[in-house]
Structures are given as structure tokens and as C-alpha cells.
Design a binder for these strands. Sequence first.
DNA 1: ATATTAAGCGGACCGCAGTCCGTTTAGAAT
DNA 2: ATTCTAAACGGACTGCGGTCCGCTTAATAT
Lengths: 203, 203
Amino acid sequence: MSLIPIRPGQPFGTQPERSDAARNRERLLQAARDLVAEHGVDAVTMDMLACRADVGKGTVFRRFGSRAGLMMTLLSDAEAEFQREFIFGPPPLGPGAPPLERLIAFGEARIKYVEEYGELARAAAEHSPQNRHDAPPVVLWHRHIEMLLREAGLDRDPWLLALSLGATLDPERILHFLRAHGVAPARVAASWRELVTRLLKDC
Amino acid sequence: MSLIPIRPGQPFGTQPERSDAARNRERLLQAARDLVAEHGVDAVTMDMLACRADVGKGTVFRRFGSRAGLMMTLLSDAEAEFQREFIFGPPPLGPGAPPLERLIAFGEARIKYVEEYGELARAAAEHSPQNRHDAPPVVLWHRHIEMLLREAGLDRDPWLLALSLGATLDPERILHFLRAHGVAPARVAASWRELVTRLLKDC
DNA sequence: ATATTAAGCGGACCGCAGTCCGTTTAGAAT
DNA sequence: ATTCTAAACGGACTGCGGTCCGCTTAATAT
């Protein structure tokens, strides 16, 4: 039932992790959530986290690989929920509605997602085009958009077109307008609606 | 005649810079160009540059403010040329052609620009949404797109729509597909053409 | 020439992400 | 219980971007 493993807590083919590792993972996640709540995503450093969780710095990086990896882990629940909604949920976001309406709903849902988790999402993509463009959830979003474009009859390189539309919904970008320019979320959503509506007209 | 001051060599209202400062600026720029040519943008560090230019590290940061600032300076000639072309140059990129054709030409020119200067452009925008979205050249591109959209009769929030189209042409994004996914530039250009053509149909 | 002064300078220093490697320990095998 | 070993651990260390601040010097005034 789980979709794409966003950040496998314990990798697939291996035996269950050692008890001390499990304990440390819980300690780290709890400490990370606390620190984010207290100081905000951007102020949380890896040293701070190691210290708060009373764990060596090496352990933090062994667990999460990088700061971006940590942020992905913190996002994974919300991300899984989002995926569930647009894949299995009720229309118009989920299956059952015509592709244009699903696209519109997808954009709106993404914008809400950014409102809530934007800082985390941005931090999860920082410092690596790879993270930004090829992370499993991102690829899934793109495949979803591509599928909807095809359903709508757009057959001219829907993959690239889907990537372009995806760029439009990039968390850092959306967040920047929301926060730094004070653009209302509803306005962003309206613009997205306008964009995809025009794009799919007469297909 | 100069357009937007991309990175003022010597700020506006002040008297000409001191001779030693001028000498150091030339030394730094030359060293930076050499280092980029030798090792590639991503491998050039600020310490390396200071050392090569035989200058203190503080001087490097006094001059350019940050690594991104240095990269913007290195880009400024190419950027000014690009601006000249789409503002004053011959159609279809410059004025004289219908807006759709100018938009198409704009995207194609940007893609060529990324092919040539993409690494620099990416480095110039790194580590700051501000640099990425609100740098003077970026704002100018967006205004240009917005103007073309208006000319084409698209009157529903052309500013946000222009930003979305701009996101589509983001250097990091384009560069990522070109380099990491081996997508041909012509294919990216075709996708852009498709996107804006559909967008402006019946306006 | 000399004095004045603000711009310029340099490099020690800081905080951070990420690495390395010698040490510890959980858990299995005996 | 003892031994064994691979996984996990921790914290010193590196490299980088960026800052700070006491020193130097170019340009100007006298």
C-alpha cells in the first residue's frame, strides 16, 4: 500500500535495524521536530540537532545522509498523504474527474501544501539540482501531470510540458511569492487555473 | 544607453574608485575568468580566487559581496548583450514581430544563453531565492514576457503568468535537463514553442 | 613636503555541512 | 558465559562562504 518510499526508514532487503539505531532514530526525529517548531526550519543546524538528540554528529549524517535528507524525512508523512490524495482520493483531485479539473485541483493542492510545508520542502531541495528535480516525489508529481496531459489529448512531448508545469509549482518559487511579495495564495491558484485552462483548450 | 546596471562596477553617485581598488578589480576579474576556464565554475572557490589574484580574501568579498555577486559580474557582459538583443535588436527577438513570435524567439534565445552560460547563471542564483527571483536581469525578463503577454491580449494577471513562464526557462532547470538528462536543446525549444503557442491561441 | 582621513586592505576567525576513522556495542554463534 | 564481527557510534577534522577589525595607503587639503 505504501507508494514510493520517500526516505526508507529501514531499507528494503536488510534485516531490522539494531536497537540502539532505532532508539537514536526516534530521538533524532523527535529532536528535529522540536527544533523546527522552536526555531524554524532555516535556523536548525545539524550540530544543534546532534546535541539536542544527545548523539554524535556522525550518527546524524549516517541516518539522514544530509540536511536535505533530514528534511525529506520530516516531510515524508505529509508527502505520502498528498500522494494518496491525488492518486486514490476523491475527485476532482483523485481519479474520476476530467483531466483539466484534476490538473486545476492538483495545482491548488500543491499551493496549499506549500503554504503549510514550504520551508521544509525548500530545505529538502536545497544545494542539489538532483534533489530538486529528480527526487522520487517530484518525479511522481511530474508523471501525474504528464498522465493528465495525455488524457487531455496533449500529445506533443507531454513529458517536457509536464516538467514545465511542474516548475511553475516549485515550492521555493511559490513560497517566495507568498512570503516575500505578499501574493495571496488564491491569486496564485487563479493564475495556475488560467494557465492550465488555456493550455488544454481545444484538445 | 546602458540598461539595468547588473552589477555596478563603480556605484552611481560616488567618485571614481581609488587606483589600487581599480587595479585589484582587474586582477580579480582576470583571475576569476582564468580559474573558471581552467577548472569550471563549480570548482572555483573564493579562497582560490583571492590567492590567484594575490589579494586578501576580504578584498574579494568587498568587491563582489558574495560568490553569487562574483558570478553575476562575470555574466554581466553577456547579460547586457542579451538584453540589448531582445529590447533593441532585430525581430523576431527584438521589436517588430508579433508577440507570439517574439515570445518563441525569447525562449529560444534563453535556451542558447543557458547552453553557453548556464553554469555561471546557476552559480549567480545559488543560495538565495532573492538572487534567483528578484535579481535585476530576472525582473527585466519577466517584465518583457509580461509586456508580450499583454500585447497578445492576455489580460488575466499577466504578471503572475509571466513569472510562471519565466520559471519554465530557469537556468538551473534547463541546464539540469540538458546536462543530466541529455535532452536536446532543440527539444526544449520545441516544448517552449508548443507551450506559448497554445497559451496565446485565440487571444 | 606634511598632515589628515576615509577608503581600501588582508587574513585570522566563525559557523556550517559533510567526512573520517578509531572505538564501542548489539546480537549471533558457540 | 564467552567470543566474534559487522553495524553503529562520536567527535575531531576539513573545506567552504562569509565576517571582523586593526593596519595601510591613496588622495586631498594645507
